[in-house]
Nucleic acid binder design. Structure first.
Lengths: 205, 205
DNA sequence: TTATATACAAACATGAATGTATGTAAACAG
DNA sequence: CTGTTTACATACATTCATGTTTGTATATAA
């Protein structure tokens, strides 16, 4: 059972990433051994070291699997103007993210790993910086939409788009945090959508 | 240089905790070795194992050093009613927490460790649960204060205290997260107070 | 058809890190 | 003044994870 076809190889690669995600979630990234992942994937460490040079690279692959498509979706939802009124745009974006978490186990697990099962030091410190700059760009985009809302007179005159955007952004970071940490699912998960709507209704004139 | 007096012993205990905090911050909890901590503290592993049975216990000690006093302060600020109007109460509580982070290096470092340099698995999973229940109680207290505000007619009639509390709570979690992660200090740290005031002003009638 | 590169498995060598056990000098109790 | 306990340092044994090397069967290119 060696030397598979190229497609077979890509399949084991995906199996390894899947296995890594499971084990990372259960044992934390640091305590996870290549051996753990190999066993979970039904291969040997040799296979893993063939596809990835070390655990960090494997972690990055797992991360990109969910984050790259997510960034694309963000632009679609937030920046396609004209179709909807701005505030609904933001609301949809926030709800959409929660919905993705609800529907995609992979995304959910990856978020949980990144928030509570990973230490951002040395090679991983970059990830934190990437996340931060990602946050900045979200914030920027939300601000632009609030600008449009203000131009359309949908906001209270005393509210500044920049501050509203930051407030929404921080609210959402908090929501994501609690959503992910609330693994029992009783407290936040099923009322997240309501919370978003309540948050947005604070802004509507 | 052995067998210090009891006070000396307590002092080395504190030195060990200090050293642990420094090393945890720099290398992450998992990658930190007892040897690392010992070297930083200027003792041997023997000293550490005398005071703490393992790394987890040492971590807990470091954590309690800042979190126990913090919980006390929270009650004081939030629950002493009558002196101030409710909304100012909340605002003061939020600003006070940020101020503590600004003033106390120990608190700041401990928060950073707990947010980005620690994996919440196995023995550490309890910490996450503790933090969550802590959050619930904060949320509860904030809600009570919003109830008072509503009774005093300080809120828009359409705003429910429970939802406002959750919104404020999530905003604050997000703010803490970004504050801590923004180690360069240029983006969030110096505008945190403004953000809190803007957030609260959204609520005032 | 043969040579080579691929996709792994298996074996090996090395380097930690942990916990414990033992040693020891000084504080303290009597 | 002596015995005991304290507060460590030192030494030891064990476990374990990593990266690399080697082996190998098969796809694939030529």
């Amino acid at each position: 059972m060696v030397r598979k076809t190229k497609e077979d190889a890509q399949l084991t690669r995906l199996q390894i990433i899947d296995a890594a995600r499971e084990v990372f979630l259960a044992r934390g990234v640091s305590r996870t051994t290549m051996e753990h992942i190999a066993t979970q994937a039904g291969v040997t460490r040799g296979a893993i070291y063939w596809h990835f040079s070390n655990k960090t690279e494997l972690f990055q692959a797992m991360r990109e699997q969910v984050f790259l498509p997510l960034i694309d979706r963000m632009d679609d939802t937030l920046l396609v103007e004209g179709t909807q009124d701005p505030l609904t745009c933001i609301e949809r974006f926030l709800c959409g993210s929660i919905q993705t978490l609800n529907e995609s186990i992979t995304t959910r697990q990856t978020y949980e790993i990144m928030m509570t099962k990973c230490e951002y030091v040395e090679e991983f410190a970059i990830v934190l910086q990437q996340t931060l700059s990602n946050c900045s760009s979200i914030n920027e985009k939300v601000r632009l939409v609030y600008e449009r809302a203000k131009a359309l007179g949908q906001l209270h005159p005393s509210h500044e788009p920049a501050q509203l955007a930051m407030d929404t952004h921080l609210f959402f970071i908090g929501l994501l945090n609690m959503w992910v940490k609330d693994t029992e699912g009783n407290r936040f998960r099923h009322q997240a959508i309501e919370l978003i709507k309540a948050h947005m209704s604070l802004r509507r004139r």
